[in-house]
Amino acid sequence: MKKFVFYPGCVMQTEQYALDLSLREILPKFDVELVDVQGFSCCGEPLKSVNQMLSVSLAARNIALAEREGLDMFVPCPMCHLAMSECKRILDSDEEMKQRVNTFLKDDALTYTGKATLVSILDMFHEVIGLEKMKKKVTQPLDSLKVASHYGCHLIRPSEIGRPDDAENPQKMEQILSTIGAKPEDYPEKLDCCGALLNANLPETALTKTGQKLQKIEEYGFNALVDVCPWCHRQFDARQKKAGETVAAKLNVPVVYLTQLIGLSIGISEERLGLNLNLSPVEALQNGGN
């Protein structure tokens, strides 16, 4: 059993319950134990436009909490993972910045040391668990399901900060999808943004961006769009109908979390994977899926 502090971030634990639920369902099946810790806050990334010093300090505070447990930290949300990776990159190479941040953390009786390793959602499956181990658990391969992957910008860029997959040709999600029997295919818009970050001030434009990408995916005849980021998923799934309106199209793209598909392939029930929480037409999956 490998143990990790589970960092939930804001969007997943307050709204995107399907991701939370499916992770908690499947990881123990692969001998990964998640430890819930009280006291986490926002990762800081959404406030980068407001005050970067605040962002870095929030990220450092969360890492410090995990460090106190003496465990490495599992950060499934790509945006949170980026915020903390960037924070680590700055503080681990700049003693002065580290001290500055730690003066603030002292108020909360916390210290950032830099000793905890951050594990992203891709690394959790691809590296920590590994494809071999995953393959052994697959009982219901998702034969003939043609799927498009969406990594989300923050999971693959900027590579300088150290991201879990290649910035220009990420393939880990495809490898995981192939392992569980699905048929992932690349498409021209694979690396494009979902638009979610514009929600703060230009929600209409954010939806247009979402709509444009979904429209392409529909056009290419994919059975589903697979994502891992709660921000992207909210755009593609919950807001799909509205996104369709911005591009004058009625969109019908099933959108699922990678974790939900993994769960299906190892025989976990749809209910335990929160599939009823997806608002996009995921029932279409069942025909192709099993």
Binding site: K48, C153, R157, E160, L191, L197, L202
Partner: peptide, 11 residues
């Protein structure tokens, strides 16, 4: 304020 933070420019 129109940046989507996709990081393509930086990448």
């Amino acid at each position: 304020w129109t940046c989507m933070s996709c990081f393509k420019c930086r990448e």
